[in-house]
Structure formats: structure tokens, C-alpha cells
């Protein structure tokens, strides 16, 4: 290992996982998104919150510019199928469909299947514990990092 290889070497700083917490469409329910964003921060994640009323296209571009490890979307307004379709399409267009996407909020059980089919990795229903969310998000981020490491030889820790 050269003297620069370890991320520990960067003045003791570690490369932290980066998550985009997004609200799309006209949905103003932000209690859940904010609680989750805080929980992730307190678990050591670097979180970027998009704020309300974003288009799926804006969210995809933010994810690409910030090169996040996970995109976490919160939808409670029932427009999830429509919005998630657009988000996934835009991510694909941008060549960013390797970024894992998770979803939380008001999702009726019959819609779970079609959403998973769009490529959404995890769906968190109301009542999910923060511990479970943190654990699953971390796992997805780790997986993504190790895939990248395999390609570029550059990973995090």
C-alpha cells in the first residue's frame, strides 16, 4: 500500500456514505423524510435533502451531480407509480441506474410488486424502524462501493 492508499490516511477522515433524500411532485408530507434524514446523519451518513416539490428529473440530476451511494425517496401522496417510473427512466438516461433507489411512505401493498419491478431495491412501509432503515441503506451503499472498487480499484471504507 502506498502512503496515500488508505482513506484513513486522509487526516483521519473516512469516506462516508452519501445519501440523497428526495421529495418529488406536489407531496408536502415531509415529516418522515426529515426524520429519516436526521437518523441517517446521526448514523454518520452524509445526507443531501432536495426539499419539496422536485421533479423526478431534478432528483436524478442531483443524484448524479452529488454522486450519491443511495437515493432515498419519500412519497406519501399516492403518485408513487407515476413519479418512480419517471425517476427510474431519467436515471437510466443519465447512466446512473447503478445507484440503488429505495422508497418510503404511503405505499398500498398491491403496489409493492410493480414498484419492485421498476428496479426499486427496498420499500419501507410506515412503521419501519429507523434501525432497519439505516441497516438496509448502509448495506446497499456498501454493495455499491464494492462494485465500484471492483471496477476502478477505488473504494471507500
Amino acid at each position: 500500500m502506498s502512503s496515500l492508499q488508505s482513506t484513513e490516511a486522509v487526516g483521519g477522515a473516512v469516506r462516508r456514505f452519501k445519501v440523497l433524500v428526495a421529495k418529488m411532485g406536489l407531496d408536502g408530507h415531509d415529516r418522515g423524510a426529515k426524520v429519516v434524514a436526521r437518523a441517517l446523519r446521526d448514523a454518520g451518513f452524509e445526507v443531501i435533502y432536495t426539499g419539496l416539490r422536485q421533479t423526478p428529473e431534478q432528483v436524478a440530476l442531483a443524484a448524479v451531480q452529488e454522486d450519491v451511494d443511495v437515493i432515498g425517496v419519500s412519497i406519501l401522496n399516492g403518485a408513487h407509480i407515476h413519479l418512480m417510473k419517471r425517476l427510474m427512466t431519467k436515471l437510466k438516461d443519465l447512466g446512473a441506474d447503478d445507484i440503488p433507489v429505495v422508497l418510503g411512505g404511503t405505499i398500498p401493498v398491491p403496489d409493492l410488486e410493480p414498484l419492485y419491478r421498476l428496479g426499486i431495491r427496498e420499500i419501507f412501509l410506515p412503521g419501519t424502524s429507523l434501525a432497519e432503515i439505516i441497516e438496509k441503506v448502509r448495506k446497499l451503499a456498501e454493495e455499491k462501493r464494492s462494485r465500484e472498487e471492483a471496477v476502478t480499484g477505488v473504494g471507500g471504507c
Partner: peptide
């Protein structure tokens, strides 16, 4: 925690 919630972007979103 060393974590963060970054807000500048929100204003330029």
C-alpha cells in the same frame, strides 16, 4: 456523528 445534512444545494436546486 461526523454525518451531515447539507442544505446549500436546496437553495440552488
Amino acid at each position: 456523528s461526523g454525518g451531515s445534512i447539507m442544505g446549500d444545494r436546496l437553495r440552488m436546486q
